[in-house]
Design a protein around this nucleic acid. Structure first.
Lengths: 143, 143
DNA sequence: GTGCTTGCAAACGCTTTGCAAGAGT
DNA sequence: ACTCTTGCAAAGCGTTTGCAAGCAC
């Protein structure tokens, strides 16, 4: 049931790289970073290890910016600020209340709140059954 | 300066399709929907018209769910709920305060707030100059 | 005619995956 | 041995784009 993991040096390096920064890095950044320590590491290995880390809960995705998924080693949910010019993602730990904050110089254009969870239809349906089905690439049809 | 738009029937149909639903449709959905009225319309045209509509401000993106960008004809920012099982995106107009809401049956797992705007570095830099540069696909490097 | 728009198909870019070889226990 | 993991390369898939033809004014 519980998969035993080898905890290869590659996996450790990936997790370490993600935890070493607060820039919410992309796969490309992580790859470049890890390559300085393990020059031979391949992109596929980065992807696969990020996936494992996410399943383990040691890494979360903070969304897609400019076509690249961005990751965080701080897994506790917290607000972020995304610069629409350069793509920087900044942690916002002490959530300000006004719309027009200027947190450390960050000027807010718009604010988006997203709740993640389970909708009525999926709540009703058998959990495991629909869960698997719904996660299939082409399976779902958001109607 | 101000581009004159033809407002082709294709463009109208795309905008109409997006406005016809509250499901925050994907390109695929929009294409299928518009094809029932304009069977010959191509995917590229859907993409190009969505782009124009976004630049005009008549359509906004509400994010990427399961690899597909999702759009909204209601351009005023408002919170959304994303079902992690089936990918549904639901409008939340009356924002509840607690974490454990059960709005119309939607059970919240986690909540994410994202601010979009301009970071210090980009604020300092000349607006137009860096703005263009920063938006380039490969140009930026979120450090 | 001029400039915006379209359909088509090819290209792009990020991500995933099949496979045979390698590592860890 | 057995299982997990890796590097490589190819494939997948959503999205973008070059181009010649079409449309609207």
């Amino acid at each position: 049931m519980h998969k035993t993991h080898n905890n290869s040096k590659q996996r450790k390096a990936v997790l370490e790289a993600i935890r070493s920064t607060d820039t919410h890095p992309s796969v490309r950044w992580i790859h470049e970073q890890v390559k300085t320590k393990l020059p031979g590491i391949s992109l596929g290995t980065i992807y696969r290890n990020i996936k494992v880390c996410r399943e383990e809960g040691s890494v979360v995705s903070v969304g897609v910016v400019n076509n690249e998924e961005r990751f965080d080693g701080i897994v506790e949910p917290h607000p972020h600020a995304v610069c629409t010019k350069c793509g920087r993602i900044i942690d916002i730990d002490d959530l300000p209340e006004a719309e027009n904050i200027h947190l450390s110089g960050f000027t807010v254009d718009k604010r988006r709140t997203v709740f993640y969870g389970t909708c009525v239809q999926c709540c009703r349906a058998g959990k495991n059954l629909l869960a698997q089905f719904g996660r299939l690439r082409k399976g779902f049809s958001h109607n």
